[in-house]
Structures are given as C-alpha cells and as structure tokens.
Design a protein around this nucleic acid. Structure first.
Length: 429
RNA sequence: GUGGCUAUGGUGUAAUGGCAGCACAAGAGUUUGUGGAGCUCUUUGUACGGGUUCGAAUCCCGUUAGUCACCCCA
C-alpha cells in the first residue's frame, strides 16, 4: 500500500487512539468537577458570525486581526468565522435565549475545538481543544475565585504537579481610563526605549506593551505605572476579596502587575495558571481567564451582565501529563474471549456476544481470524483467561466449549447456562 | 507573518553519489478444532514536485508536514 498523498492541514492533527486516553482523562476530570459544582454543559456552533468576535474579542486584538479563519458563505451574504474562543459565543447564547430571566447566576461549561491561524509550535495548534466555564450574572468576587479554584482542582485531579496562579486587576470603565492615560503619558515619554513592535502598539493597544518580553522594553516596563495603583474603590475592594478567597482556599498565587491579557472584553480580575516549574513554562499557560462585565453590553445587551470565565488548553495539559508520566487507571481487559470456527458458528456467535453485552460481561473476539490457533493466540496476548469456543459441532448441539487458559481445562456448557457459568468462573478468578 | 532544524516500511533505525538493509510489529504456515517459544515464508518504505548527474535516499530549488524561536496565546 502506498502512502496517501494527503496530509493533515498544518497545525491540525489527528487524535490517534493511544492519545484518546489522555483526552478522555481530561474530559472526565473537567466534567466531574463542573458537574459537581452545578455548572451546566453547553455547546455552541463551531462557526459564528465574524462580527461576534470582532466586537466581542476586540478589533485591535491579534486574534481578530490575524488569527481568525473567516470566510463568506455561498450566497456571499454571511461572513462567518471558525470560533477562536468560547466566551463570546456563550454570551451570545445567553442573550439570545433570554437567560437573563432565569435565576442568576447562570453557570455554564463547555469543551470542544477552537481555531486560530497561527504558526504552530509547542503547545500551539491551529485546531486545539479548550474546556472552559463561565459564571454569568454574578458580580461577587466569589465567582472569580471559584473559577480559579475549580481550574486548580482539575489540574490536581490530573496530577499536573505544582501550578501557580498569576493574577492582576486591570480595573473597569471607571478607573481604567485614568490608568490608560497615565500609562500612555509615561510610555510616550520613554518611546525611544521601546522595541519597534511596541512603538507601533503605542497607538493600537498600549496595555499590551506591558506584556512584551523584549529585553529592551523591560526596563521601561518595570518602572511603568501599574494598574493596581489606579483602581477605584469598587475595583480595589473586589480584587482584595478575590485574593482573600484564594488565601482562604490555600491556592498559591503571584500578584503580577504586568498581566494584561490579549482580549478586549476583560475588566477587573485577569489571571493565568501555569506550571510552577520553569522547564514546563515554554508552551505557555495552561488556562486563563478573567472578569468581563462589559461583554454583554458590547454585544448589544441593554442590561449589564456581570460575568467571568476561564478557559483551559487541553493539548497543553496533555503535554504536561505526558511529561509527568501520568498513570491511567488500570484498563479493564475483556473478561471472556469468544472464538469461533466455521460459518455456522460465526453466525451464532453474534447473538451470544449480544447476550453477554446485555449481561454486562465484557467480551473480545476476532472474527477476522479463522484458525482457532490464531484466535487463542490473540486471547492469550490479551491476557484473557476464559475463552468460549464455538465450532460446527457446538453450534449444532446448542452448546459452547469453555476453556480456562491457565489450567487448560475445558468443559461443554449448554447455551442457556453460558451467562451463569461465566459469572461463576469470573467469581473464582 | 519572519527565521533555524528535520522528513527512509506500521514503529525504531542503517546505507564515501553506485544493488535501499536491519530490528520490532503485522500476516501466513509449522500433521486442517486448541494459545504463549522456536523455525520457515510473506506484506510494507526513500513525504510530494522539479533540477544537477552516466547514476540521487544522499547535492540544489520549490511544496507539504513536523519541530523550535520570534510574535501572540489556551
């Protein structure tokens, strides 16, 4: 067989059976934690109106400017985008389905693929999986803290080792303009000390300069005014409460005054969670999020919907699980193996397998092998001790042969007694 | 979007520009209805497209994919 000339698109990979174990483990951990805290699962379409993201995420952000898969539909009337993140669609759904009139807050979680057109590298793909959770209609700081702690709990469940929360508050409409003004003034005065990229950002998105890793900018950044100093009383109190909750729950955090994040909808609390040990940091943060009290309004809502959310990168978590040598719960092998010889027996065996399934007995088989030798070989390779053998003779008599692989003993069992007999033998093992 | 490195059966790996080999895996057989070992046999490859050359897995160019850094982020 020659190799196919088709390959996967860049940055989009097949999730092969052996990797499904990891994806399942992550999904299970996520589901367990969010279910327990009464979050409801929601799925939104993979594709949304392009406008939703340029308005929600922000026209000036990198995600919108260069990373979106955007296309026209056949009639050319609609412009759609493969969703690059999960929060804007959920707020859209919240508004569209009138969730405002339900008891607040609304707590939702999601899991699925997202798309960003970037150059792939460690922990960064063009199609990647994210899980996330949102608490909508809640302004209390407890919501912020709870999301952080749930994400933390998921990472502990997955045995990712030490992780650390980096957290900051970027203020709200009330105090951020003040801060922005002060920062702008400061940065303009130090313009010559900034890298070329940052000089451009002065115009488009000065907040992001704080995030620049260029050495040249570090000096300027370190002396820059910090958003924390400008917080109004409301924001200050809110942030203090978030930190107090974290301390109460003994969740380790670092106050990072330069953390700003790349999406426009954030206000007040922003945070990222990353592995504590330096070597694992290369691929970026494991999860991140923050409060977005203004997003609903940006998307056209009349009412204010205070909310916050978190999203985690599944591939990054899996990479960390692998480097931590994550141990899966022991896989349960099949309990019996069914082997068949001849066409009549083959026909009978399908019905028997279905009986076994209904009796909740896990069964393996190999219809593709005809010789009994090969089938027993497989059973032994799979480590299955109890083998049912059904051949022409047994099929005609309405019996099966039961073989114990360890002792080599076999006995004939009537068709009606199979389930009972297997259960008996499994007990003895 | 810019730059570096990489690409040989399913997997892991060899081959001064000169017959593409090895191991594992897989499949078949080894007195046709009885497993694990051994033995025998078999299938499967130079990512794709050009160029240089008598001759290319090997040198050059392009494409694709992987990987890493920048950028950004989950």
């Amino acid at each position: 067989m020659s190799k196919s000339k088709f390959q996967n698109p860049q940055g989009m990979h097949d999730i092969l059976p052996e990797d499904q174990l990891y994806y399942d483990a992550v999904f299970q951990a996520v589901k367990e934690v969010f279910d327990f805290y009464h979050f409801k699962k929601i799925d939104t379409p993979i594709v949304e109106s392009a406008d939703l993201f340029s308005r929600g995420v922000g026209q000036g952000t990198d995600i919108v400017q260069k990373e979106m898969y955007t296309f026209k539909t056949k009639g050319g009337k609609d412009i759609f985008t493969l969703r690059p993140e999960g929060t804007a669609p959920i707020v859209r759904a919240y508004l569209q389905h009138g969730f405002q009139s339900l008891p607040q807050p609304i707590k939702l979680w999601y899991y699925g693929p997202f798309f960003r057109h970037e150059r792939p590298q460690a922990g960064r793909y063009r199609q990647f999986y994210q899980f996330g959770a949102e608490i909508l209609g809640e302004k209390d700081a407890l919501a912020d803290a709870q999301l952080i702690s749930l994400s933390y709990a998921i990472f502990q469940e997955l045995k990712l080792g030490e992780v650390i929360i980096r957290i900051n508050s970027i203020g709200d409409d009330n105090c951020r303009p003040e801060y922005r003004k002060a920062l702008n003034k400061y940065l303009k005065s130090k313009k010559s000390g900034l890298c070329a990229e940052c000089q451009k950002r002065l115009k488009t998105n000065p907040l992001r300069i704080l995030d620049c890793k260029n050495e040249k900018c570090q000096e300027v950044i370190n002396a820059a005014p910090q958003s924390l100093e400008f917080l109004c009383e409301n924001c200050h109190t809110h942030f203090k409460e978030v930190l107090e909750y974290l301390e109460e729950m003994k969740i380790p955090y670092i106050l990072d005054p330069h953390l700003v994040r790349g999406l426009d909808y954030y206000s007040k609390t922003v945070f990222e969670i990353e592995p504590a040990d330096l070597e694992q940091k290369a691929q970026g943060s494991l999860s991140g999020g923050g409060r977005y009290d203004n997003l609903a309004k940006m998307l056209g809502s009349n009412a204010l919907v205070p909310a916050c959310g978190i999203a985690g990168g599944v591939e990054r978590i899996i990479a960390l699980m692998k480097s931590r040598d994550y141990k899966f719960k022991a896989k349960v092998p099949a309990q019996v193996f069914l082997s068949q010889i001849g066409p009549l027996a083959k026909k009978r065996s399908l019905a028997i397998i279905e009986e076994l399934r209904q009796a909740n007995i896990r069964v393996a088989e190999s219809f593709s092998k005809d010789s009994l030798k090969a089938q027993l070989g497989l059973a032994s390779k799979l480590g299955i001790n109890n083998v049912l053998i059904i051949g022409q003779k047994e099929a005609l008599q309405g019996t099966v042969m039961m073989r114990n692989m360890e002792s080599g003993k076999q006995s004939e069992v009537a068709r009606e007694e199979i389930i009972k007999e297997i259960k008996q033998r499994l007990k003895e093992d």
